[in-house]
Write a protein that binds this DNA or RNA. Structure first.
Lengths: 197, 197
DNA sequence: GAGTCAAACGGAGGGAGGTTCCGTATGCCA
DNA sequence: TGGCATACGGAACCTCCCTCCGTTTGACTC
């Protein structure tokens, strides 16, 4: 369900009605095509699918990369929401982490564009920065809790979980085997109960 | 040190002297440029750097991707050799694995083209197939030994190590933090001594 | 050495994809 | 309804990868 609040440009100015409509069409087309085939879809094709000219694409997004990122932002938000729910319901940090990573993998397996963005196959450096910061904050919190309760080893930081997520992403993205098992392996590696001091 | 044995085409036919010379120049240029800047170097640039026409590039390598792979094959061979030495000298499978992964990370950190190939950022599916098969065979052997001696958990196959290596690669490639620590985490996850049966 | 010919070379040009530019259309506000 | 900033479309441009073909050159024979 797309936002019904008035869409604004990054400048904060309000969009003209046709511009708002077109922006939505473009985002929908982008989400659909990128999810199915990854970033390997031409701008012409997105434009055609959205029934819009290429120029309009560039009116709304500075580059193709920005468009792919914008198209996956929704997924990112969904995952963050899910994760917060899990945290509220589950007491055990490692369990919450497992559910998060599994969800990320599932979404990535279904949405190749999202996987590209998370994995950063697209030139720059990973997930959209605000989203990344939000998730990292949550993870810092979680890791802290796990360390306090003694379940997570001490030499880990919240940011490490993000890096490990990127690693998982590349495995999911390349469809090598059953990625769920790798989550278990990494989680076992994060436990503190088998470290010899 | 380049091979001094007569270079032959994949067909097995012997190359003409100028062709052999040019092939070496191209490979050297490719190795240098790709190591430094990843696969993000144009064929024109490689040709200019090798003082050769673009056509010559395509006489020796069918596609750019094939060239990047060929340029990183040497590195792959070095790593395999190193790994075999380690295996001969070290009795402990997990230790050998740690040394292998560390070496892979070090080479990737220094050679972005190699990292692209291992990570498979390049379209198709990972390391050159013969090299991949050789390494996988070694890993199957190693994992078997570790499982027999009880140090490695039972639900792991040799191929899993390759997948995990791809994950590590994407972390190294993106320069996120200190990748060496992630090796320790994964290796701890591979141990059998903390699994509750 | 000179002749012959397959092998190899160079680089212009085809084609695809991302991005820009600008003349035209259109929503918005007075 | 008129004026104008905003937005649109798509041709054109640039950069890449790759192909094609006329020219050059090494290798082998006589």
């Amino acid at each position: 369900m797309p936002t019904s609040t008035p869409v604004t440009e990054s400048g904060g100015r309000r969009l003209r009605a046709d511009a708002e409509r077109n922006r939505a069409r473009v985002l929908n087309a982008a989400r659909e095509l990128f999810a199915e085939r990854g970033a390997n879809v031409s701008m012409d094709e997105v434009a055609r699918h959205a029934e819009v000219g290429v120029g309009t694409l560039y009116r709304h997004f500075p580059t193709k990369e920005a468009m792919v990122v914008a198209a996956s932002q929704q997924r990112f938000g969904e995952i963050l929401t899910y994760y917060r729910t899990v945290c509220r319901e589950s007491a055990e940090p490692l369990e919450a982490l497992q559910m998060l990573l599994t969800r990320v993998g599932e979404v990535e397996a279904r949405d190749r564009g999202f996987a590209s963005v998370v994995g950063g196959t697209l030139g720059s450096e990973g997930p959209p920065s605000t989203m990344r910061a939000d998730l990292e904050a949550e993870l810092v919190d979680l890791v802290g809790k796990g360390q306090a309760s003694g379940s997570i080893r001490r030499d880990i930081a919240g940011a490490d979980i993000l890096a490990l997520t990127c690693g998982l992403t590349s495995i999911v993205h390349r469809r090598s085997g059953d990625w769920r098992r790798y989550i278990d392996i990494v989680l076992d590696g994060l436990r503190s109960d088998h470290i010899t001091p």
